[in-house]
């Protein structure tokens, strides 16, 4: 890790004015310090925003305004999250470990970098790390790589579980910058790669995420789930994942939400699938048709064709679970296909 100057910001303005092109914002630090340790990034200044007044969760209009410094564990335990946005809690609790969730912030979770092993290896060409250098992942080990929205410039996936649920709930990212506030939907916050590069940075160097706004989920509050396929039962990134939320009245779906994780450089909102589900009865057949739509245009970016099948099936599973209703208490193994079936 390179030497850097450490600055603790007491106000948002101070944080923004301290920010520089080669600086970095330090919140929970769980991804930033890791990337610094492995030499992927080398900021010359760290601006510590952990003391900024961004630690609150406020209710507004049936929804929530979540401070960017709210720690993942606190967000997952918040009563309104548990009662009205349970897929957010389930996604959070399926991610990382209890220790990491106690440190990681909401804003930092959104800003976390891909776990593409070539991005993490400073010796490999990577357009995301070093624009114009190429993409070593293509032709390499691609089990964890994209099947949607990728280009020859970048096939990385975004690793967050939280973002998948947030995207499904129409969350909005509030960003402060020198020119004031701007808002970006979670769904499109992370740029997709284009033909030549991995896409622009989601934030300017002097911008800071201040809040995440979750609108009222209405009738979807208790029909929402997150499901995550992993290689071990816990403490692993998703191979694929899905968040689903449904509003069901009189045996018909009034509105549906579906987002996929582990498939693209952003949480992949499946709007065509949602549209197709509206007005349908919540049956496995309807979910299967919707899942086909969700994976429309999917293509392997390497030796990862099986992920298309897995993503389709996990979408169906999430919809089935959402239709069955959110359990009063989240399962012992959140988002697991096993849910804690074996209580030996």
């Amino acid at each position: 890790m390179n030497l850097f100057e450490y600055t603790r910001a007491e106000t948002l303005d101070a944080a923004m004015s301290a920010a520089t092109q080669d600086g970095a914002i330090l919140a929970g630090g769980t991804n930033l310090l890791d990337l610094m340790k492995i030499g992927v990034i080398s900021p010359t200044r760290l601006i510590d925003i952990t003391r900024l007044p961004l630690h609150d969760i406020e209710e507004h209009d049936g929804g929530l305004l979540i401070g960017a410094m709210v720690r993942n564990a606190d967000l997952a335990r918040h009563p309104v999250i548990l009662s009205r946005f349970p897929a957010v809690a389930e996604a959070l609790l399926s991610g990382a470990s209890a220790q990491l969730r106690n440190a990681a912030s909401t804003g930092g979770n959104i800003m976390q970098q891909t776990r593409c092993s070539y991005f993490q290896d400073p010796l490999s060409p990577c357009n995301r790390r070093e624009p114009g250098s190429g993409c070593a992942a293509i032709g390499g080990e691609t089990r964890n790589h994209a099947i949607l929205g990728w280009t020859e410039a970048c096939i990385a996936t975004h690793p967050s579980d939280l973002c998948v649920a947030l995207a499904a709930y129409d969350a909005v990212v509030e960003i402060a910058g020198p020119d004031g506030l701007r808002e970006v939907p979670m769904e499109s916050f992370h740029p997709l790669p284009d033909a030549n590069d991995a896409g622009p940075a989601p934030l300017q160097s002097d911008e800071i995420i201040t809040h995440i706004r979750l609108p009222d989920p209405g009738g979807m509050a208790r029909n929402a789930r997150y499901v995550k396929l992993r290689e071990r039962t816990s403490f692993a990134f998703a191979i694929v994942s899905a968040a689903a939320a449904l509003e069901i009245q009189d045996g018909r779906i009034v509105q549906a939400r579906l987002a996929l994780g582990g498939v693209a450089a952003r949480p992949w909102r499946a709007r065509a699938a949602e549209k197709a589900l509206a007005g349908q009865p919540p049956t496995e057949e309807a979910f299967a048709r919707a899942a086909d739509l969700a994976l429309e245009g999917a293509a392997p970016s390497g030796d990862n064709r099986a992920k298309i099948t897995l993503a389709r099936r996990i979408a169906i599973r999430a919809l089935i679970r959402a239709a069955a209703g959110t359990p009063d208490r989240l399962p012992a193994l959140p988002a697991s296909v096993f849910e804690g079936d074996c209580n030996g």
Partner: peptide
């Protein structure tokens, strides 16, 4: 509980 390896001491 946190992982002290990813906690910058000054923070």
């Amino acid at each position: 509980r946190i992982n002290s390896c990813l906690a910058l001491a000054l923070s």
